[in-house]
C-alpha cells in the first residue's frame, strides 16, 4: 500500500465541489502515476478546469480526498504551499507577470520560494528558456511577445521550479492556429522526458500522440477513462461518441 502510494503522483478519491448551491464536481476519482500523461477533455462547463485547479488548490474541494505527492490537501496553508512548490501550472491566458521581464518571470519563484541564489536561478531560467526556444527574448517584457511565445515562457516559468507535475489548463485555446504547434511541440518534448502531466485540452492529436490515458468529463462527472487508442477508436459512452463526432469532424 505504502509502495503504491509512492508511485502515485496524484490521487483523487470521491471528490465533490459546489459553487454555492451548484454541484460542479461530482464524485471524481482519479489516480495518476508518476510520469503519466493524462489528457482531460469534455464540453465547456463540464468542470475539467475546475477539477485540475483543485489539484493545486486554486479551487477548494468540499468533500473527498486529494493527495498530491503524498500530501493531502486541506486548509493547512503550509501543506498547500508545499504542494504548489511541486506542482507547476500553465494557464489558458498565460498569466505572465507583465511588469517583469521574461527572465524575471522565470527567476521570481525560485528565488523567493525556493531561496535559490539569483545567479543560479538565472542560469536555470536560461536553460529552460533555451528548452522552449526563446532564450533571445529573456530581457523583453511579456507584452512584447506573441501569444505562442508567452505560453512557452509560462511553461519555462513552471519548469524553473523543477516541479514533479505540471497542470495545463487549456494552454493552446487562446492561441492563433499558427502558434499552437510551437507550444504543443514543447509539451510533447516534456512528456517524452517523463514529466507527470495533466492537460485539459482539445488538441486530440496531442492526446493521441503522448497521452497514457484520456479522461472525458461531462456535467461534473468523469464519463469515460481510457487509453487514447481505445478512447478515440472505440468510445464506450454515447456522450463521448457525440463529443468526438463533433470535434473530430
Amino acid at each position: 500500500m505504502a509502495n503504491n502510494n509512492e508511485k502515485l503522483a496524484i490521487s483523487i478519491k470521491g471528490m465533490h465541489k459546489w459553487y454555492g448551491d451548484f454541484h460542479v464536481l461530482r464524485d471524481i476519482n482519479i489516480e495518476v502515476k508518476k510520469g503519466e500523461i493524462i489528457v482531460v477533455c469534455g464540453p465547456s462547463g463540464s468542470g475539467k478546469s475546475t477539477m485540475i485547479r483543485c489539484i493545486n488548490r486554486l479551487e477548494e474541494h468540499q468533500q473527498g480526498q486529494i493527495i498530491v505527492d503524498g500530501i493531502e490537501l486541506t486548509n493547512d496553508i503550509k501543506k498547500i504551499d508545499e504542494v504548489r512548490r511541486e506542482v507547476g501550472m500553465c494557464f489558458q491566458h498565460f498569466n505572465l507577470f507583465p511588469h517583469l521581464t521574461v527572465l524575471e518571470n522565470c527567476t521570481l519563484a525560485p528565488i523567493w520560494v525556493r531561496g535559490i541564489p539569483k545567479k543560479e536561478a538565472e542560469e536555470t531560467a536560461m536553460h529552460f528558456l533555451e528548452k522552449v526556444k526563446i532564450p533571445d527574448q529573456a530581457l523583453k517584457y511579456p507584452g512584447q511577445l506573441s501569444g505562442g511565445q508567452q505560453q512557452r515562457v509560462a511553461i519555462a516559468r513552471s519548469l524553473c521550479m523543477k516541479p514533479r507535475t505540471i497542470l495545463f489548463d487549456e494552454p493552446t485555446s487562446a492561441l492563433d492556429p499558427e502558434m499552437i504547434k510551437e507550444v504543443l511541440d514543447v509539451m510533447i518534448e516534456l512528456a517524452e522526458e517523463g514529466m507527470t502531466m495533466i492537460c485539459v485540452t482539445h488538441e486530440m492529436g496531442f492526446a493521441r500522440k503522448v497521452a497514457d490515458r484520456v479522461i472525458f468529463m461531462d456535467a461534473g462527472q468523469i464519463v469515460e477513462e481510457n487509453t487514447p487508442a481505445e478512447f478515440f477508436d472505440n468510445p464506450q459512452n454515447e456522450r463521448t461518441q457525440l463529443f468526438l463526432s463533433q470535434i473530430l469532424h
Binding site: 486554486l58 504548489r84 491566458h93 498569466n95 507577470f97 521570481l108 519563484a109 521550479m161
Partner: peptide, 22 residues
C-alpha cells in the same frame, strides 16, 4: 486580473510575497 493572483499562488508564493512582488 485574477489570473495574476492565481499565477502567483500556483508558483507557491505566500500572500505577502505575491502582494509585494506581483
Amino acid at each position: 486580473p485574477t489570473g495574476q493572483y492565481e499565477a502567483a499562488d500556483a508558483l507557491g508564493l505566500s500572500y505577502w510575497q505575491s502582494m509585494r512582488l506581483i
